[in-house]
Design a protein around this nucleic acid. Sequence first.
DNA 1: CTGAAAGCGCTAACAG
DNA 2: CTGTTAGCGCTTTCAG
Lengths: 342, 342
Amino acid sequence: MSDVNIRALAKALNLSISTVSKALKDSYEISTETKQRVVALAKEMHYNPNPYASSLRRKKSNTIAVVIPEVADSFFSLALKGIEEVAQAKGYHVLLYLTYEQYEKEKKILEECKNGRVDGVLLSVTSETVNTLHITELMDVSGGHPVPLVFFDRAPDGLQVASITTNDYESSYQATQHLYQQGCCNMVYLSVSKQLTINYRRMEGFRDCLRHYGLPFTTHNIVDCSNDLAKNELLVRKLFIRKHPPDGIVAGVEKLIAPVYTVCHAKAIAIPAAVKVVSFSNLPYAAILNPALTTVTQPAFEMGQQAAILLFKAIEKKQSPGKMENIVLPSSLYIRNSTGKG
Amino acid sequence: MSDVNIRALAKALNLSISTVSKALKDSYEISTETKQRVVALAKEMHYNPNPYASSLRRKKSNTIAVVIPEVADSFFSLALKGIEEVAQAKGYHVLLYLTYEQYEKEKKILEECKNGRVDGVLLSVTSETVNTLHITELMDVSGGHPVPLVFFDRAPDGLQVASITTNDYESSYQATQHLYQQGCCNMVYLSVSKQLTINYRRMEGFRDCLRHYGLPFTTHNIVDCSNDLAKNELLVRKLFIRKHPPDGIVAGVEKLIAPVYTVCHAKAIAIPAAVKVVSFSNLPYAAILNPALTTVTQPAFEMGQQAAILLFKAIEKKQSPGKMENIVLPSSLYIRNSTGKG
DNA sequence: CTGAAAGCGCTAACAG
DNA sequence: CTGTTAGCGCTTTCAG
């Protein structure tokens, strides 16, 4: 941290502090000549304004918080990139917080966002988040100004808040329909936490598609998976010991595809001949898996960008997004060999 | 942003501001009873200290910057997770900056780290970074306190700065040796930017291994790739039109593996029968590629953790790491089918 | 044990 | 066009 501050400049130039301050901001009040002198010396002395002094005074941090469950995940890392890009272009700084899917962490982190540290928050909730008091409190600070917030991807139900999401229900329906059209009639949906709205919607899309085509839908069609790879492999293994093993699998999240492929390879169950597979995934390597994986791919990068753009709109209008925009960006079905004719 | 500040508390309790401040910090100077009253009211009124006021006064931000080229990449996203975890445990905040492999961005970002915004910086340089003045300036601010900095993964040569890296040379040598032992005698190294020290070291490891085994090493053994997927595919295609197509490929970075697999599939070149393939990669899906990919895997998460730990050591000692620690964490060779006997 | 007062570095009225 | 002044909210001597 340098110790040349605005006062040092003022002293060296025989000017007042406020003149220097204004000159640095290119204020119309200051003569061109003075501006030039100030800027020149500032450069020479490597003057760097202290952001926190400025934030304190202006009550503006030029910083946003990104609160996500995980970063080593192709969806979130891509979305984060989209966010960072927009923020950097706007001259904003990005504070990154990981919740590790823990509600308590999320709560604690949002608490820290209330005190002026950030001008806004981008949030993708944990799979544990059902109580949303910590969120509404942030947006309605008692006796203070609300902190603008935009959800992306994972938004809790029943909250009047701006959000960028994708069409989980429809794309899941579509993926299931694709399996049906490829000849599957005994499909299974691999589910993660049911509390997670996006997983729930995907499951509903799956269910409604089965019903629409007159296929039975029972508890057998849903497999609740965990975060543990080994356990998930076991669950997949069990699928193929059933009297009627599935001929189609929809993996609700990316990480569930590894156990499926692993088990199928190990047990020599041919994909797509014996079982066709589709997964929600942003994996850039889907096309070089064995076989190439059919995916429902979310527009992760764009979702990050749009979420940031929406947040900056709210910040700049200095109003919590009155017209709560809820933008839904469509996911895409990329059909590859894992759902081929076999 | 709430408007209950320390003054509001003081007024409500009929105490002085400084007493409240001390009470909140559990100072020994304050009576237990007063402390309790203060803490109780603080909670009730949802008091949240303003971090920037505190930072300004204490000249300490409790924030670090992480400056990396890219985040949608399995190495960096894992490392970032390691960093965030350690920072969160320490009560620090993490500012994320992406350089997109651009030197100018890196320079500008580090400039912003000089003004007290952060207490330290974790840096992985861009592939364009050869001039390191912007880095040394940060660590030796004229007439000010240096900002502690730790490199991770990508550290420029010839700089006396703490770093966490991995054994690029050795692991590359080892991977090449593995190919040799599997029968390869005409190997090619797929290279990214030669300015990048890690790529250079990996290339050297490759080269020295060839030499050690008496294999010819010419310009034909190195293929300079770009960031463009289509171009890289073309380069790989050309490899197999050669009079003597390679029987072994070492991909210097993860993203170069997709073109190899794609081209081999398209042209029905059997891996590993016709050509054996190994890649530097942190891809969690290496095992389910077709065929399963042999990888040199860096301890990304641990590198992130260790880098953060090292940085906090430097920050807390309030000295730029005098005993410049340069920790090298070993990468691991995971042998899978892509380098099998075919 | 409590309080008064100075000041971190910058901004923004308001005067001149 | 330039300068004076009063803070932003918190921490930290130093007195009492």
